[in-house]
């Protein structure tokens, strides 16, 4: 810092931030303002925006669908943080050892993420179909020919089945973690080896602590994408049977396209945002992400 003139540097800071801030204002801030305002109205997509105070928010907490959506979101967030992300990191750690075939696996793992979510959803409806579905065909080999389960549409299994559509496809986590691991200096490993550390210890005591920041990032990315998960639900169960697979994003969109309740939909969106900010700041604190990896 000492070498820069303070004012000159400030100009650079402003210059470097301007494009991103401009994008933010254009794509997020203005829509957000509109959402916040309309969440206090009974706006139906037509010209009149009638102010109704907190009624949308009060209605939310009396809506059994909302409570179900909240509960589902909570469980999915846990699954994202404790299964999805650890799995992605695990795969990255294994891949980083560069065992034979690692490049192939690395590229292959990305394929389900390259296929769009709505296409994955369509695909899984074929996997989970009761009669000629792939899963049931396999299970019949073990459980006898009479075995039948309607995975996505039986309230006993629907939640679990829907979770499988995204749970294991953690290639994004793997991608960001792997590039981080590969930039760790090999000398560190050499030193650890000389100290007698084995490969498990190296992963646990050297790699994972160094990856703290990126794992935190991964947790945030995973949880927020669960919060916003839409196509997967919409194209398979649309929240059913009953409310067993509903989430807030689907609820909000349905409020618009089925009921024309823009105000209510935006109240759901704002609630989701507040929830997200809380979870995000908790995660950042938990992973001490504002400190650099060196501290």
């Amino acid at each position: 810092m000492s070498k820069f003139k303070k004012s000159g540097k400030n100009i650079y800071i402003a210059l470097f931030l301007t494009p991103a801030l401009f994008m933010f204002i254009l794509i997020y801030l203005w829509p957000l303002c509109l959402s916040i305002i309309s969440s206090f109205t009974s706006w139906d997509g037509f010209t009149s925006m009638k102010f109704i105070g907190l009624r949308n928010y009060r209605e939310l907490f009396n809506d059994s669908k909302f409570l179900a959506a909240l509960w589902n979101t909570f469980r999915w967030a846990l699954a994202a943080a404790f299964i999805h992300v650890p799995f992605g990191v695990l795969v990255a750690l294994i891949l980083s050892k560069k065992m034979i075939g690692w490049r192939f696996v690395r590229s292959a793992f990305m394929i389900p993420n390259i296929i769009s979510q709505s296409a994955m959803a369509i695909l899984f409806t074929f996997i989970f179909r009761p009669d000629a579905g792939i899963l049931n065909s396999v299970l019949r080999v073990f459980m006898g020919p009479d075995f039948n389960a309607n995975w996505l549409h039986d309230s006993k299994y629907a939640f679990l089945a829907l979770t499988q559509i995204w749970l294991w496809f953690a290639a994004v986590i793997t991608l960001i973690t792997l590039s981080e691991i590969l930039s760790i200096s090999p000398e560190l490993y050499e030193a650890a080896k000389i100290d007698g550390a084995n490969v498990f210890q190296i992963d646990i005591f050297i790699n994972i602590p160094l990856l703290r920041n990126i794992i935190g990032t991964g947790v945030i990315i995973a949880i927020t994408s669960v919060f916003k998960m839409f196509d997967i639900i919409y194209m398979t169960t649309n929240g059913g049977p009953g409310n067993s697979t509903i989430n807030l994003a689907v609820m909000s969109v349905n409020a618009i396209i089925i009921q024309n309740k823009f105000g209510y939909a935006n109240a759901i969106g704002i609630f989701l945002l507040i929830l997200g900010v809380l979870v995000m700041s908790m995660t950042m604190r938990g992973f001490r992400m504002n400190k650099s990896a060196m501290d």
């Binding site: 309607n150 549409h153 929240g239 059913g240 049977p241 089925i258 009921q259």
Partner: peptide
Amino acid sequence: DPLTQNEVISTELVSLINGT
């Protein structure tokens, strides 16, 4: 109404048939 058609029938018909 659209709510009954799109939300109730589309998600609860399944429960009705399953006997839930």
